[in-house]
Amino acid sequence: MSAPLLRINGYHPFKALMFREYWENRRAVLTTPLVITALSMVVIIISMGIFGRSIHINGETFTLQQVIANMSMQDAQSLKDNVNHLLLASSAPIMIGVWFSMIFTALGSLYDERKDNSILFWKSMPVSDSQTILSKLLTVTLVIPLVAIGFTFIFQIFLLIVGTFATIGTDYSAWDLLWSSTNLPAMLLREVVYVIMYSLWALPVLAWLMLASVVAKRSPLLLAGIPVVLFALFEALFFHTRYLIDFIGKHLSGGRIQGMGMGGDFNHFSPRGPLEILQSATQPAFWLGLAVAVILLYITVQLRKRSSL
């Protein structure tokens, strides 16, 4: 399917490296978000009531259409106000799946090539270790999540279309209820900004995983995890502190830039706007993380230079 789209055509070393990452990680880049999106769509279609009543409220079952038909004016207003947030929240399964793709792609990035002996083939090509590692880093931090955002965008449009069908036969108009209060470009922009900032926040952790990947003889996951656990225990026992865990937690949660107050209530779910997300870069922790990432990546490059098998 991708054959005609994907041609390198002539001498473009970095482009070739990026394609190589795509070919190797097709599953993480494309298949994972595709499958999650497709499954989510199936779940939605089922819950729409095509296969019978499936929404359970106080022991009674309804179709989506019935729920909309029975909404009070107040509920409808609330839905209108929160439709953007709802759509954002709906992409959570895709983004969670992609988060795991990022983690495991980073862990395998410099390990798999040693495991299958192909490292000597890659090293027989005139590309530097730093370029190779940069291509892997970009794949993990940008390509995988940005492709996923494409899928969330498709899914959001799908939801709006489904919602439109659900309003047919009710007193509400789809335009009023859903489309007029939805700002798809703004949501897309917000998600792109979020993904970039998340990757920058998480960079020290991802760089650590890549370092484990270049060193590990057996399991990069264990090699990445065990020192962290040991150090955290050591810290807790002897100093009664938890700096390392806090550091990892903060960076892995993207500096908590998402700003989700998941209380179960619509009104407490208040995702931040792109500007607010960008503002998280003013925190010293953000820059500290980037500095740590640069050091870890430098070590990773040096180690790949050395390790030929």
């Binding site: 001498y11 070393p13 070739a16 490296l17 394609f19 070919w23 083939f121 890659w122 005139p126």
Partner: peptide, 20 residues
């Protein structure tokens, strides 16, 4: 011991070598 990676297609290997 330096084998071509198992997951690459023949045409992709050609594309890659041409690229670099």
């Amino acid at each position: 011991v330096a084998t071509l990676p198992k997951w690459i297609r023949v045409c992709e290997a050609i594309d890659f070598v041409e690229g670099v």
